[in-house]
Design a binder for these strands. Structure first.
Lengths: 248, 248
DNA sequence: CGACCAATATGGTCAGACCATCTTGGTCCG
DNA sequence: CGGACCAAGATGGTCTGACCATATTGGTCG
């Protein structure tokens, strides 16, 4: 292992806080204390505390560091929460899917209203792979990702892009354990892609919204089935039930 | 003097990057070089670089730090971008409003579908101040904020909450210069609040969506007018530090 | 019992050094 | 002449130790 003490310390403390080892408002051990426990110098502990503060999990002040309520944390905690168990928390994944779908919908609306014909055409090009009878799993996933990226870029909404990118970066790596259990309804995707193509061509915001809402339901249902499949196979895996939505 | 060298350095570098002083992909000066320029310890420069990396504005690697494309940055850059000028960028504010409105709409949908009757009642309670003929500016703003918070909490969607909170924390402080130029249509707000109240009571998702979309248009238009007002007054004056009477 | 104050603990900062790795520039071979 | 190769310098990463300002803590005094 690459002697990166501060990462090890930060990961340990992050996990301890997220699973409730340290309660909200409680004081964390002092930096010198932690340095002793982890057999590291105080600089390493200090960098770890900086990371905790950046994640919004704790506030570091002269006199001691205190744990903050989860709902005041940074968006970046999502990745750590997803990584708590071997399989991500299903409720949290559903929340992410809802937000992601909402953001893409918003971006698509902006794109339809703002983007040039060339940009719209670019999006529709990315839509072509989804219109074909192409059951290849990876290609389909890649096409969906590129479609989303194109929509985000054409939306001209930087805020939307930043959030979606951040969420996706934390979300995607943790979905690998479920990848094999996802069964997509390619026919439905093809149908929605066709509707999307038409809505884009005619710049029909209403149809766009309806289609994205339908795709949202499809994606969430698909994830739900994948979790059910994982539960059915991996009965031994025990995930600590840390519910999002917490104290006040 | 804050004597916090690393904050000063980070702020300076952040600003330089955001205004295009350093172009994307370009190498930043070395830590030792920057330490010399800012007459600071390398540790301070190092902490500043950590901050830049956390903001997603630069990647620090052995061999040098390089500037990253803006669309790969963290959501936290929004606050710095808003702070670039005396008055925030209008387009960026509109993007934020769009995303915030979308998030609240999503949260409200989730709340209507998931929350208990007591929680829905709690939201409707927060709606009461908006239903009265109460032209007080600050009270109205506070009521809208609390309504949003209640909806976010009742949604049970942690992701939504974290994003909205982060956005609001960066957004709200920068809106102070425009505060005095915002003219709200209280009648329209009252009408929408009534529709919202009805939609919540009947858990009518369709009506909820329509109302939030209408409120989104109202808020964006309100912001647009405020910017126009600022441009009209600030064009001649040098220092637009207007104090419109009441302080919070 | 409460207010006050000193001793202690804690985080914040700084300085200097060493190490692993990347960059850079020259050199050597084909 | 061009490309591969290698050594020297530069750069970030880490560690050690120390000092300072302030918050905490516990005792003391009124």
């Amino acid at each position: 292992m690459t002697t990166r003490k501060h990462e090890e310390i930060a990961a340990s403390l992050t996990r301890d806080i997220l699973v409730g080892q340290y309660r909200c408002g409680e004081r964390l051990p002092s930096e010198r204390d932690l340095a002793g426990r982890f057999e590291a110098n105080r600089g390493a502990v200090r960098e770890a505390m900086k990371k905790l503060e950046q994640l919004g999990l704790a506030t570091v002040q002269p006199g001691g560091a205190r744990v903050q309520p989860l709902h005041e944390a940074s968006l970046d905690v999502i990745g750590h929460m997803l990584a708590l168990g071997e399989v991500p928390d299903e409720d949290l994944v559903d929340q992410i899917l809802q937000v992601m779908n909402g953001l893409v919908r918003l971006a698509a609306e902006s794109a339809v209203q703002r983007a040039s014909d060339a940009e719209i055409a670019g999006i529709r090009d990315r839509l072509q792979p989804l219109l074909q009878t192409d059951p290849d799993h990876d290609c389909h996933a890649l096409a969906r990702f590129e479609l989303m990226s194109a929509i985000m870029e054409a939306s001209g909404n930087l805020v939307c892009r930043l959030i979606a990118r951040s969420l996706l970066e934390q979300f995607a790596p943790r979905m690998v354990p479920l990848e094999g259990h996802v069964v997509l309804d390619y026919d439905a995707h093809r149908e929605y892609a066709a509707r999307l193509d038409r809505a884009l061509a005619e710049r029909d915001v209403g149809a766009l919204r309806e289609t994205f809402d339908a795709m949202s339901r499809l994606n969430r249902e698909s994830a739900r089935r994948a979790f059910a499949a994982v539960r059915a196979t991996g009965a031994a895996g025990a995930a600590p039930t840390s519910k999002p939505g917490s104290t006040s």
